[in-house]
Write a protein that binds this DNA or RNA. Sequence first.
RNA 1: GCCCCGGUAGCUCAGUCGGAUAGAGCACCAGAUUCCUAAUCUGGGGGUCAGAGGUUCGAAUCCUCUCCGGGGCGCCA
Length: 583
Amino acid sequence: MKHIVADILNQALAGLSELTEAAADLSVAATVERTRDPAHGDFASNIAMRLAKPARKSPRDIAASIIEALSDSDQVEKVDIAGPGFINFHLSPSAFHAEMESILSEGERYGRQSPQESPKILLEFPSANPTGPLHVGHGRLAAYGATVGNLLEAVGYPVYREYYVNDAGRQMDILGVSVWLRLIGMDGIEVPFPKGAYRGDYIREIAASINTDGVDTVTADDVLSDLPADEPEGDKEAYVEALIDRARTLLGDGGFNHIRQQSLDSIRGDIEDDLAEFGVTFDRWYSEQDLTGGDAIDKALAVLEERGMLYKKDGATWFRATDFGDEKDRVVVRENGVRTYFASDIAYHFEKRERGFDQLIDILGADHHGYAPRLKAGLEAMGYKGNDLEVKLVQFVTLYRGGEKMQMSTRSGEFDTLRQLRAEIGNDAARFYYVSRSNDQHLDFDLDVAKSQSNDNPVYYIQYAHARVASVFRQLAEKALQWDQAGGRDHLGLLVEPQERALMTGLSRYPEVVELAANNRAPQHLVHYLRDLANDFHTYYNAHAFIVDDAALRDARLYLISATRTVIANGLAILGVSAPEQM
RNA sequence: GCCCCGGUAGCUCAGUCGGAUAGAGCACCAGAUUCCUAAUCUGGGGGUCAGAGGUUCGAAUCCUCUCCGGGGCGCCA
């Protein structure tokens, strides 16, 4: 609806030559916003104040001349000047009626913009390492990423969702050795379990379930002889390393890789199932092994080399990240010839861009914030723009149980999983809560509170509004009454109660909220909006009966609540939350 | 030391490109149900927007400094 005001404002401005220069680089639409106080009308523009300085006139004088130049519109009822120079627009009821009609006719498309070809967006999240089940922190990345993806699609962008699987490198060896130690433990060979290995219960479950055909049996002496000390006496990394070497020696590379690969497959399968149940799906699971196995990294390094972005120092190969604003140069090939994680990351982002995606969005945990500058530096060094990559950081989730802060560490095994969270509070509440706060805000998740207060949970409040509408229509059917939709549309003029006016205003805001939330990658705007809209509905519900004897009024009211049902359902769908017919 | 995020009601948090009297939930107090689901609604109290300067018609919002809390700064992944 905002465009109604922006359009006539633009028109008026075009006719005021004394203001064209002052308004040259001003977006008129950006000066138009919803009013907070109904007394101020439906929309207000601060354009006169913005133009006051460049035009060297008083805001109120400018406002007066703009209003003078406004052409008549049957969608605008009244325009006036208020306060320091705001121009307030009161829209006509028919403007709102037309919006209600759009909601009914567009249905689940209402609030969505038509699909466009570009920019093509590659949204990467949550890319948790496949070394254990997803924990509650990953859940936040997943919910946020999925919702941002839905929002971007709603405003018309082509979105491609990708999960980057870190399935190459040392951590996979650590995973393999962790499972192997549990495996031989089942045969009675007790090895002091490494501090640096993965010790969660899921490791034992994998050990118990994998296929050990072709894996050599070993003796305790074979495993234990001449091992270095673990922490606290020794170095935990050296200890794990020695055990990996031992496993490779005793089992052969083939035997060890057999265990390693099965462990990876098991965990990755678990993550895929977990996310699918959570309503989070991907266009591609991008394996780091594909990257390291092919020539993608060589290609990226060659590009950097060609452009003179690499140099040797202390036997290692460095990337000149400082040339692009990073705080220090970064190693891409270590002295021992092994390429760093950063090398594959930079190759991956280069490759994403090469695949034809215009805008890369990474959703990362806040502990990765140092990564943004070096990844942008990498893109720039390879000929793209740093701004082609947008990094959204999501702050930590702190889990409480019984008021006690819980430790979350995959290696220590004391984490709580996304699965547990979903089982305890349900997918809907989890999806909703995860995105109800700004990604920049730490999220305190108290399981006891989430469970004990589940009836006061805003997600139920919103779902209840949806279910209530469905219930009204069931009542209608029980009373053997019909809803005449066309008749309702023709009698929308009967909806003159303040609650009806408020609800129509709320409904008409929906497309603007979706756009705002998408542009800012800020799902919480939608969350708060839906809560407010549900409130408007419940207030209306309590103030007036819908199924009244007057058929014209009844049809009009049913038209309004039908529109409410559509908007709530559309909003919840973007959040990945169900919209029940009954509760 | 440097970098990122946060500090708004008792608690948890919204607050759009700077805009009109700073909002919501929970908690607390007082009410509403012969009537479409009370998982609801109505009303009330509750604020030095961490602090200090600055920018301007106007600052919770932008800038500078300080304080407090969380996180990050590897030839790890």
